[in-house]
Structures are given as structure tokens and as C-alpha cells.
Nucleic acid binder design. Structure first.
Lengths: 237, 237
DNA sequence: GTCAACTAAATTGTCAACAATTTTTAGCGT
DNA sequence: ACGCTAAAAATTGTTGACAATTTAGTTGAC
């Protein structure tokens, strides 16, 4: 049950969005890849209207770009876009973490600690899919616990974008933020030290950004069916 | 040509969104008002699919709430939502104004100065519609000039929400932020004084928020046709 | 061989009828 | 009159066929 679930009541649409997002962060769907409506319809066994709705949501999230009358592609954020996304995340998350320092209950802190433990476990067993998911979820959790619905919504948009950016520009080294930095943030929250929590968050996000190669921009395109590893019938040659 | 124009290529949909937004900030469409699809279809002389798309966009923007299978209403943000919206705006706009202090060209500053002049003119001639529109546009202009597309998009969401909130909770007194405070912000930008610009923006937004009555919550509902003052045929009694 | 115009295929965009759901209304017994 | 049930009306949600647009392919002149 991925954390980026949109507010849509329709399960199929959420599933489409989630699968595409997952394929992107796993780098099986590269930026620029074409997303044909009919193809997605076959893969997910649904109607074109549904696919269309899902693509519309994904465009809002910044994960795909829709060229009118020309179809949808995985978005290709430039270096500028990447910097903007991190800049916005910094602004929002500094506020969130500060807020949480004031309002966090013992239960909230336990939830966060438990989450970090999960992260560590996933890290230990080399489950990179879980690592990526949990890593993003940590930040979403802070937003959720701070209780601001709107800030959560905004952060969701930003997290999706930075995920795409990370998948696009990441070096072979650190794929995601390690649990240690999350731990330091949690420690500051627990100590109710707003300044330190804010500083740790800043450091963490800056670390994430500088771990990218924001100079070159390789952008190959990959096949859609393989990326979504669907069991839909391959087209007979 | 309203400033909140969404990225939609379709003119009709933009028009629907703009007219509804305008009716809301003018307080002719009150929060909670029902938005029936068929009614909107008649009013704007379009198809239901178009109306549906427009409502979907407006929901994303936070201006309407769609209750599944039950229809759409003008959103009714609570006090919590209002505080969140201003909190997010503060986070984003502090960053924007700081950024603009560094990057503003002489032309940018002239643009802003000209805009404030327009605000003053509208204020002088008592054109409250223009005052509301220009007042919001000033903040959007700062985002636009700072060159961050993503931050502009986020601020657009937030500005729409705070407009709704202002329309909902405003006292009879100050309807919008006066041009004077905008002037102070511009002065700080021109002086390249990041700290002061940030402070002025903070003060401005806090002033906006405290000018509201965030305790009571009157929410009458008004008629749809009259609010949009359409020339669509009234239903014969 | 290159380019242009033209035709055919593939793809997206739109619509109007149909289905599902909710709300209102009417009926009925107590 | 009140509460309950069931039909009827009103409203939203969905689907599949059709229209418009773009892309690819073909032909033919130079």
C-alpha cells in the first residue's frame, strides 16, 4: 500500500499511478518514455477513460508530461526544476519539523522510531524497493504527524518530483538518504530542539541534493510493458 | 485574463474555473454552495464532460470539494485549514522574496513598481474586483519573476486557498492587503536587503491572517445562476 | 537521392446515451 | 403526526462509438 496514494476513491486509478511511480523510481521506466493510453489500458485491464484520469493525476504530480493531442511521457525535469523542487522541500520541511517539535506526542515519536527501524531492516536485507519507499515515507510521516493536511499534500507533490529527479540524476553511490540522518532528525524532535531539528533537516535535504550529478543529463527511453512487468499478452510478432 | 489561469489548453474549462473563482472571491458564491453539473453545463453552454474536468481542477486547487456520487460544493475550509494555508504561504513566499533579492533585474523591479501603481489606481477608483485580482497577482508576480516554475505552481494553489479563506472569514474592514505593504516589500527587494524583505513579507502575510475573524464561521449558501450572472435561460416556473 | 504533397494508420480528444447511486417523494400502518 | 418502506426523480459515474489530430508511409517529380 504505497504511501503516495492519491485521494481518488477509485482503486484502479490509484494502482495505475502507483505502478508507474514505482517503475520510475526503480528506473525501469526512464524519463521521456512514451505512455500510450491504449497500451496502459491493455496492461491494467481497464478502460481508456480510467487511464486518462490516472495520467491527468500523474501530470498534476509532475511525474508525467502531457503534450496535447500528442500523448503522455514520463517527465524530464531539468536541472533548474531539480533545484526548485529541493528548494521548495526545504521551505516546507523546515516548517514541518519545527511544528512537530512543538506538537509531537510520545506516540508520534514512537511511530517515527519504529519507522526508522523498518528502514534499517530493509537496508540490512538489501531490499532496495522497500528502502526507496520507506525513505520517502519517513518525510511524509513527519507531515502526517504534524497534522497539516495541506502541507502533506504539497510535500507529496514535492516528494514525487524529487523521487523522479533522484532516479534521473543519481550517482551509482547512495541511492537514498540513509536511516542515520533520519535518526538525527528524530533525536532533535525528541529533544524539542527546534533549531537543531531544522538544521538537521536542512543538512539532510542538502545532502540529498548534492549527492546528485546535476550537470549531465542522460535520458534513455525504455519499453513500457517490461517496465511494468505485466502479464498482459505480448503482441504476437 | 485572470492570473490564475490553469495550464489547461482548453479555453472553456479555464473560463469555467475563472468565473467560479471570481464569484467566490466576490462573495456571490458562498462556501458550501452546491455546484450541479447540469446547471453549470447550461450556464456555460458546454458539455457535461467539460464541466466535470473543470470541477476536477477546482478540487485540486482546493476551491471546491467533490463528494463522490454526491456532487461538488464550494469548499468550506476550517480554521485549521486557514492556518495551514498561511503557514505554507509564509514558508514559500519567504523563500521567493529572498531569492528575488538576489536575482531581480532592473526590469523586474520596474514591473513590480508598475504593478503596485495599478493596484493604487484600482484602489483609488474603488474597483474592488480589480483590487482583489491585482492584490493576488502581486504575489504571483514575485513568484514568476523569481523564475521558479514549481514554486509558482504551489503559490498559485495557496493563493487560491487563501482567497477563499479571506472571502469566508474577512471582517468588513480591510478586504485585501493594501498597496503600501507591497511597496515596503518592493523597497526591500530593491535595496537587496534579504533579511528585511523576508521580514516585510512575513509581516504582510501575518497582517493578512490576523485581519480575519478565525473564530466564528458563518456559511450561508447562495444561488448559482445569480452568482455567475449568466445569461442562460432561467427555468420557467 | 531529396524533398514535397498526399494517403493511410495510429493515437488522442469528445460526446451522447446508458448504468449506478443518491436524494426526494409518496404510500401505509401504527 | 411519526416512522418506516418502497417506488420515483434527480444527479453523478461510466462506457463505447465517433471525430479530430498527429504521425508514419508512399508516391512521384525534380
Amino acid at each position: 500500500m504505497p504511501w503516495l496514494s492519491h485521494s481518488t476513491t477509485n482503486d484502479v486509478i490509484n494502482q495505475i499511478c502507483d505502478r508507474i511511480w514505482l517503475a520510475v523510481v526503480q528506473r525501469t521506466l526512464r524519463p521521456g518514455a512514451r505512455l500510450k493510453e491504449e497500451e496502459l489500458t491493455e496492461i491494467f485491464g481497464t478502460t481508456r477513460a480510467r487511464v486518462r484520469q490516472a495520467l491527468s493525476i500523474l501530470e498534476q504530480d509532475g511525474l508525467v508530461t502531457i503534450y496535447p493531442n500528442r500523448g503522455a511521457c514520463i517527465a524530464e525535469p531539468g536541472v533548474e526544476d531539480a533545484q526548485d523542487a529541493f528548494s521548495a522541500r526545504l521551505a516546507i520541511e523546515q516548517r514541518l519539523v519545527t511544528r512537530l517539535c512543538r506538537s509531537a506526542s510520545a506516540e508520534d515519536i514512537a511511530t517515527l522510531r519504529d519507522h526508522i527501524a523498518q528502514e534499517r531492516a530493509a537496508h540490512a536485507r538489501g531490499d532496495s524497493e522497500a528502502v526507496i519507499r520507506l525513505s520517502g515515507e519517513f518525510h511524509m510521516l513527519i507531515a502526517k504527524l504534524s497534522g497539516a493536511e495541506l502541507l502533506l499534500k504539497i510535500l507529496r507533490m514535492l516528494t514525487i518530483r524529487t523521487s523522479l529527479i533522484t532516479a534521473m540524476y543519481q550517482t551509482q553511490a547512495t541511492q537514498t538518504c540513509g536511516p542515520d540522518e533520519h535518526d538525527r532528525i528524530l533525536a532533535a524532535i525528541e529533544a524539542r530542539d527546534e533549531t537543531r531539528a531544522c538544521h538537521e533537516m536542512t543538512h539532510h535535504l542538502e545532502h540529498l541534493e548534492t549527492a546528485l550529478r546535476l550537470s549531465e543529463a542522460p535520458m534513455p527511453v525504455s519499453g513500457l510493458r517490461e517496465a511494468l512487468h505485466s502479464m498482459a499478452p505480448k503482441r504476437a510478432t
